[in-house]
Design a protein around this nucleic acid. Structure first.
Length: 153
DNA sequence: GCCAACGTTGGC
DNA sequence: GCCAACGTTGGC
């Protein structure tokens, strides 16, 4: 069974609709080691990804995506003009890795953070853990299934 | 805009 | 290796 994941994105920055429009995107700009490690070490092509909109009026899971590539160095770390430039990274020793994502489909309707919190079956979801700030994290497949159920309800 | 939580940095 | 200071995240 493939592993499942959740990625956060601010919709004003890069929304799920934008991913659908683009058809595929490099998940650039992640600058947290744990999130990097998940992408670099644990993600596999075809893994299911919940797409979550954060820092917005109604935070919610809005769509399903999938991992579309193995991990490779994030090119933005090498570009001094890019906001994600990292002067300590070199081509010989990249610091940041990413994967490509492809959209699968939007949820029938967004499942809000408040709904997730209200569902006892999702109580152990890592997204809901106190103080969680990771932008890339694993999700239990049962929790993915439950989110899809809520979206269809 | 506020604030709690957390990660990173850098002095020692 | 400790830890205070600082910056960022993200809900509200």
């Amino acid at each position: 069974m493939a592993r499942c994941w959740l990625v956060k994105s601010e919709p004003d920055c890069y929304s799920f609709d934008q991913l659908v429009a683009d058809g595929r995107t490099a998940w650039e700009g992640v600058r947290n080691y744990q999130a990097r490690n998940y992408m670099r070490d644990d993600m596999r092509v075809g893994d299911v990804v919940l797409y979550y909109h954060s820092s917005t009026a109604v935070p919610a899971v809005v769509g399903l995506a999938k991992v579309a590539s193995e991990a490779y160095p994030d090119a933005t770390q090498f570009d001094p003009a890019n906001e994600y430039y990292d002067p300590k990274a070199t081509a010989a020793a990249p610091r940041w890795y990413l994967v490509d994502l492809e959209p699968v489909r939007p949820l029938a309707r967004p499942v809000t953070l408040a709904e997730l919190r209200a569902d006892p079956r999702l109580a152990r979801m890592q997204l809901l853990a106190r103080g969680n700030r990771l932008s890339v994290m694993p999700v239990d497949p049962e929790h993915v299934k439950r989110v899809e159920e809520l979206a269809a309800a």
